[in-house]
Each structure stands twice: as C-alpha cells, then as structure tokens.
Design a protein around this nucleic acid. Structure first.
Length: 108
DNA sequence: TGTGTGACAAGCC
DNA sequence: AGGCTTGCCACAC
C-alpha cells in the first residue's frame, strides 16, 4: 500500500486495513485499530471512517462495533444495505452475526 | 491554548 | 444478559 488510499490523511494505515477486509466479511473497530498500529484507539478508527464519507474509496461499511452492531448514526441504513449486498446477514436491529462474518484479519 | 465530544473497547455491577 | 463508568487519541469550538 504505497500510494493507494489517500495517503494525504493521517489515517492512511486505517484506510489500508479497512481496504484489506474481504467482501462478505466485517471487522470491528478495535481489530482495525490494532492492525493499523493503534491498539485500543478504536475511536480514532470511527473518526477516520467518518471522514471517508466525504471521499468514499474505502469499504467503511465493513467496519462495525464490538457488539456486532452498526453504531453509525449517519448512514446506518446505507451501511446495512451495503452489507446485505455483500452477502452479510444484518438483523432488522442493525445486528450482525460476528460468529459468521467477523474477519479477524489473520485468517482468510 | 484549553475544554468537550466522538461511527469505541474493556471492565465492573 | 444488559447498563454504567473509565481510558484512549484526534478534531472542532
């Protein structure tokens, strides 16, 4: 990932990790943060992904919270639709089965 | 320059 | 099982 994914932003590492999430899979903020070199700083991931809404070049919709639920209050409906389009089963309450679609970033 | 908030996580009750 | 509290870092006012 040298010149890909807007390296002009301080969240380039986060963008890279999110971009590595395979289709039909989801990842938690904490997991992405750890893979990006920011263990525990899950909030930064959420903040970075928020900025992506203005650029939309990274599968931000594949990132959900630890409870397996979509915390996005800005585009929860859109995110759910995108995940379902990817083959991810999203509950009517924006809840996702982590036991089946959780991507730990180590397997695959 | 300092305070407050945020698409969260982990711990405790 | 669910709900409350604390800690983390970056950004807006």
């Amino acid at each position: 990932m040298d010149g890909s994914a807007q390296s002009d932003s301080p969240y380039s590492a986060i963008y890279a990790v999110v971009s590595q999430i395979p289709p039909g899979r989801v990842c938690t903020y904490g997991r992405v943060a750890a893979l990006a070199g920011l263990p525990g700083q899950a909030r930064l991931v959420g903040y970075a992904l928020h900025a992506l809404l203005h650029h939309s070049v990274v599968p931000w919709w594949r990132v959900i919270n630890r409870a397996g639920r979509i915390s996005n209050v800005y585009a929860a409906d859109e995110q759910r639709a995108r995940l379902q389009a990817e083959g991810v089963v999203v509950d009517d309450n924006y809840l996702i089965d982590l036991a089946r679609f959780l991507w730990e970033g180590d397997e695959a």
